[in-house]
């Protein structure tokens, strides 16, 4: 279930984990997760989807982005460019034949591969939301912080957002990053039935009907 893949990081080679349902079958799907907290909120739904695809004869691989989840790399050293390289390396290592990018994963997935993109998110929207969370949390604590000032500081010094110590390169990268979809099929949340997008949820949850709908689209 847990596979490893070699990934170069800013401090040399490191070993990263991936959740893998691998029986050496011809169809091999790399899943590039959403970014930050959205990845946690959607993980259960994606893992349930992986089990369904396993039953449908498709191998699946859900790698950690370096610095995230079980990764031992320093989160502050990460950038969109670094994550993009890492996902390409993971795709090659696992001999992926197709890719599913989820939300902010669309900013870093190997977009020369055939596949699907579920509700791609713009970098600026992800950043805006995390800065807003910080401003709201500060206000609750009786302090004042300004979004524009925070962004300016983040670009040069980095910024802690929702517990993530983002380096300056990650902040600067997110500010203008757009999903680059190159022939992959876009999947809208509305195609997955009711319940709403799990990335919006305040608490992580399973969504078996959404997992099944996504598995059906991918199995084709």
């Amino acid at each position: 279930m847990i596979a490893t893949w070699p990934c170069p990081g800013p401090h040399g080679q490191s070993e990263e984990y991936a959740l893998a349902l691998d029986r050496d079958r011809p169809r091999r799907l790399l899943i590039v997760p959403a970014l930050f907290d959205e990845a946690n909120r959607m993980r259960r739904m994606l893992v349930d989807m992986m089990r369904l695809l396993d039953q449908a004869g498709i191998d699946t691989f859900l790698p950690d982005l370096p610095g995230c989840n079980e990764s031992l790399q320093d989160f502050t050293a990460q950038s969109l460019h670094g994550w993009r390289s890492a996902m390409l390396i993971a795709a090659r290592h696992f001999r992926a034949s197709e890719v599913l990018a989820v939300r902010g994963g669309a900013l870093v997935y190997p977009n020369a591969m055939p596949g699907w993109v579920l509700e791609p998110a713009k970098g600026t929207s992800i950043l805006r939301q995390m800065i807003r969370a910080r401003v709201i949390a500060a206000r609750e604590a009786g302090e004042h912080e300004d979004s524009a000032d925070l962004l300016e500081r983040g670009r040069t010094e980095g910024l802690e957002l929702a517990g993530w110590r983002c380096g300056a390169s990650l902040i600067a990268g997110l500010e203008h990053a757009m999903p680059e979809i190159e022939g992959q099929r876009l999947i809208a949340q509305s195609e997955l039935g009711g319940g709403g997008g799990l990335w919006l949820r305040a608490e992580p949850a399973a969504a078996p009907a959404q997992s099944a709908a996504l598995a059906r689209i991918i199995a084709g």
């Binding site: 805006r128 969370a133 709201i136 929702a162 990335w199 919006l200 305040a202 608490e203």
Partner: peptide
């Protein structure tokens, strides 16, 4: 209780 600052930020953005 589930509406923490992160969830509120998500709510406002949506």
């Amino acid at each position: 209780p589930e509406l923490d600052s992160m969830a509120v930020a998500g709510l406002l953005t949506e």
